[in-house]
Write a protein that binds this DNA or RNA. Structure first.
Lengths: 341, 341
DNA sequence: GAAAGTAGCTTAATCGATTTATTTTTATAT
DNA sequence: ATATAAAAATAAATCGATTAAGCTACTTTC
């Protein structure tokens, strides 16, 4: 049983493929095709289970009904859950997702964008690394909708969905200060991505307000966790008088907990911890770790909504929708959060 | 600047598009095209950055260079890391990944398979739910390679990559017995998927060997974690004399830990725990939780290797490669694993 | 020096849809 | 009965590649 084409349908019913095409695309009324014929065709198509070849369709129409999703790392729970939610919404709207991990690697990301272009992806959802401004600019110039999330490219005027990073770490740090902690460090990945800069700034702002000296440690992003844990271990060995730390991402936070476990540093007795991004590891740590929870559902929801809007408004120069969402400081810990010396 | 097509290239160079196509596909020698022309074309193509339209190419050749990856839930760390590794290998071999989550929903999975077919995916990687035997059979009949992982469909003769589930839980349970635990439960998702049946069986076998009575609790898979935690809480409240439990998956295990936290049950003092699938939550729990670590790298490696082999051997009826990998029981816990009453 | 061979390209069909332009058929008006 | 408009359906071009088959012009071969 070979796959059916529109010609087969047309031949079988002794009509032209044009007619079949019109009917299948709901343009029967518009093209005033007789109701009886419409019914005959619809019925037969249903009966034999004919599905148009989407490649041919895409070639002709230029639309592929595919969305390209580029995250930093699909195996990171934060990105995985957002991907999951976006996937659901996209499928429901007839779009498929082509996804990939950028590893925050500029060159890799550029290649992936080309790959997506090549595949005639209709829209792009990107958690962008630095250095891809020109490529994104080009996409926009060519009328392809792009929505960024988690961070954005300041030099590129496009839609994005983010959380209020600066306020989040500011607030978290202030929380620590109010609990009486005095030597608070900030540990994060070395990066000049917008969200990272904002997170560091929030921390610094809070410290400045209380006239404390900031201690910022940046570790280099690496697939191999050991390469993250080593420098971090050295850092905590060196700064022995720290009594609290804010971690810039869930991954850094998780590595941090591993370091503390290895060094025998008790959380929160010896070291209060707040990490960006909430997830099971922090919830189940004992005692559980305070975390800045990002509203993943809302992020995913906004991202896909904005993108679908752009896709439907077909080239209409919709004004940029930049959505900034609030995070939620999940305060946890046996000592109800206040310092006990 | 409109996108270039092969015709534009041909016109510009005053040659036929056939020639350009042959050169671009490395068939210049075979089609004895002059070396100078080959160079001229190659150079020009490079210069203007022409990339063939892959849709047109796929339409003509029938190959899309895409692999469909269907996992249970992309936001589950086990599947996310495998997806990540497969993605890497696939991209390196010129294949893109279309992925989706099945939620173990038969109907949804059938629809997704159709979606993939429609997209002319070249090969399928599936962690199959039950009930899709016919659909997979059809794929195979149509010459489309399918590799399954994590579990398989006993009635369908296709390649799969799995771990030795039965031995894994048997071994884990025996470990608990050797430590002196006497009332060991097995908690898992209700499912008759091969891997789940094997896991329960391994547990039962070990208990039988020592003449203990098995206590198996099955909870229903649900997106909403509360629906898992509730019945599990009831279960542990009811069976108060349990001193150890084996969890069938990382997700059940994580929920279990949440239940114990809520009920004030200390692990491992009041309840020894071993969970299938190792990940950060178990490593960082204090004291860390013993887990059955699956070799995700090896799984991903084998899956993609088998699939690529099939894709390249072009319809050749390669014999089924079924790979069964060993798991690794990561023994952890402050009391070095033995029971202290 | 005519037949055969070959190097080097090109013509045209094809994949399976969409869509523009056109034709045929039927109904209505004059 | 004929012109005219409306309704219904179709032919053919197109999207951008691949590829089987064909065409020159030049070189061999006997």
């Amino acid at each position: 049983m070979k796959k059916l084409s529109i010609v087969d349908i047309a031949n079988e019913l002794k009509v032209s493929k044009t007619t079949v095409s019109f009917i299948l695309n709901g343009r029967a009324k518009e093209k005033r095709i007789g109701e009886d014929l419409v019914e005959r065709v619809t019925k037969y198509v249903e009966e034999v289970g004919y599905k148009p070849n989407s490649l041919a369709k895409s070639l002709r129409t230029g639309k592929s009904n595919t969305i390209g999703l580029m995250v930093e790392d699909i195996s990171n729970p934060f990105f995985a859950s957002i991907a999951r939610l976006i996937e659901d919404r996209a499928y429901k709207n007839g779009y498929k997702i082509l996804y990939c991990s950028t590893d925050n690697d500029t060159q890799k990301t550029k290649e992936l964008i080309n790959m997506f272009r090549d595949r005639h992806v209709d829209g792009y959802i990107i958690a962008p690394p630095e250095g891809i401004e020109d490529d994104v600019e080009q996409l926009l110039k060519d009328g392809l909708p792009v929505v960024m999330f988690d961070r954005h490219l300041p030099k590129v005027n496009t839609d994005y969905v983010e959380v209020d990073n600066l306020f989040s770490t500011y607030n978290a740090t202030r929380h620590l200060i109010q609990q009486g902690y005095k030597n608070i460090a900030f540990v994060t990945f070395a990066s000049s991505q917008t969200q990272m800069l904002a997170r560091v700034q929030g921390y610094k702002d809070a410290l400045k307000e209380s006239r404390f000296t900031p201690v910022v440690k940046e570790v280099v992003f690496n697939q191999d966790e050991e390469m993250i844990i080593k420098p971090m271990t050295a850092f905590f060995k060196k700064y022995k008088d720290l009594d609290a730390v804010v971690f810039g991402t869930n991954h850094v936070g998780t590595c941090g907990l591993k370091v503390f476990n290895a060094l025998g540093i008790k959380v929160p007795e010896n070291m209060a911890v707040i990490s960006f991004d909430d997830y099971d590891v922090f919830k189940l740590y004992s005692p559980p770790v305070t975390a800045i929870a990002q509203p993943v559902d809302e992020i995913a929801d906004n991202v896909i909504t904005v993108l679908l809007k752009k896709l439907n408004s077909k080239g209409g120069s919709t004004a940029s929708h930049s959505v900034i969402l609030k995070t939620n400081l999940q305060i946890r810990g046996s000592s109800s959060g206040s310092k006990v010396d």
